[in-house]
């Protein structure tokens, strides 16, 4: 084994006494040559997904060891914002939290020929860079639907849920926005996009939905038949895992489908900011994009792909993302969500 799994599962990171954030997994990828530098990456993306990219990076930079730490998006945010731990690169799918980090001055400026070449919508200043775009999808089990048509819009979905409560009761999954950063982001963006979200929340709330904190759990439960459908699942996880499952269907709803940008930033207190930047460059560059698409299953940022899906609504990297992080706004939103979701 070229990689040594240092810790699997929920452990408390003991890097420093102040580091009280919760780490899910920490993996060291030793340098292929003589180690002279260590790149510390803090990420919300599972090690298994990004491993090919890390190995590709190390193939080019044989003297770099990579310490890859996985945590939830809230913990990633806390590690940088509250605890100021000096990671060299922070990767997260929680665009709002990444934006908050950059806006509040925790992201260093980084510029290279590659970062200059990425389109405007895929970066914010020279501090926050998107490298993957992932659609937020609905997944359904054909068997579970029991002959009902696969919904193509939220209106279809609402009508189907209303019309056949017996099919769906207790068998609907979605994110818990109170517990999951990604879930909160998807829900708030949904609420922005359309009023139909609240109707959907009400309908789903009436069907004893199961709440999750990760897309993978929803996918697993769907595969095992515990769920008929799961709403707001990361397509980049669902696609590869359900590709060879004839029963499961990944649906990009046609009224609109949110597109999430997975972003990276180099913290201002990074020990080796150039290494962090180099890894960013690698992911944005040709080889990194190929590895992301083919081996990691993460669609790299691609303007053409966005243009070809007229129903795709990429979330914008702008200060609007800060709004729902506001204490009062968050409380108001979650209160409203709770009242809509648990009306009965």
């Amino acid at each position: 084994m070229r990689t040594i799994v240092l810790a699997i599962g929920l452990i408390t990171c003991l890097l420093s006494p102040a580091a009280a954030f919760v780490v899910e997994e920490e993996t060291l990828f030793p340098a292929t040559g003589v180690e002279t530098q260590i790149l510390s990456v803090l990420s919300t993306t599972d090690t298994a997904i990004l491993r090919p990219v890390i190995l590709g990076f190390q193939a080019r930079n044989s003297s770099v060891s990579v310490r890859y730490t996985v945590a939830s998006s809230q913990e990633v945010y806390a590690a940088i914002h509250d605890e100021g731990i000096g990671y060299d690169l922070v990767i997260s799918s929680a665009m709002d939290l990444q934006m908050k980090l950059a806006n509040d001055g925790f992201a260093a400026r980084y510029r290279s020929a590659l970062t200059d070449s990425i389109p405007n919508w895929a970066h914010w200043q020279d501090r926050l860079f998107a490298f993957a775009q992932e659609n937020v999808v609905l997944i359904v089990s054909r068997a579970g639907l029991n002959g009902l048509p696969v919904p193509q819009t939220r209106r279809d979905l609402i009508e189907m849920l209303r019309g056949h409560p017996e099919v769906f009761r207790g068998r609907i999954g979605t994110y818990d926005p109170k517990a999951s950063g990604a879930g909160y982001l998807f829900a708030t963006q949904d609420a922005r996009q359309s009023e139909s979200f609240w109707r959907l929340a009400e309908v789903m709330g009436g069907l004893s939905p199961r709440l999750y904190t990760s897309s993978n759990d929803m996918i697993s439960d769907l595969k095992q038949g515990r769920l008929v459908l799961a709403y707001n699942v990361l397509g980049s996880y669902a696609g590869p895992r359900l590709a060879d499952d004839p029963d499961a269907k990944v649906v990009e709803l046609e009224d609109y489908t949110l597109t999430l940008l997975r972003t990276g930033l180099v913290p201002v207190n990074a020990a080796a900011p150039n290494l962090g930047g180099a890894f960013l460059d690698f992911m944005i560059g040709t080889q990194g994009r190929r590895l992301l698409r083919d081996d990691a299953g993460l669609p790299p940022t691609d303007e053409m792909a966005l243009a070809s899906g007229p129903y795709l609504r990429p979330m914008r990297l702008d200060p609007g993302l800060l709004v729902f992080l506001d204490r009062i706004k968050r409380k108001a939103f979650l209160d409203e969500w709770s009242s809509a979701f648990s009306q009965n």
């Binding site: 200060p319 609007g320 709004v323 706004k329 108001a332």
Partner: peptide, 13 residues
Amino acid sequence: IDLPYEAFSILGS
């Protein structure tokens, strides 16, 4: 207080 999303979004635009 209800912070309007667009107010901030426009600042970013």
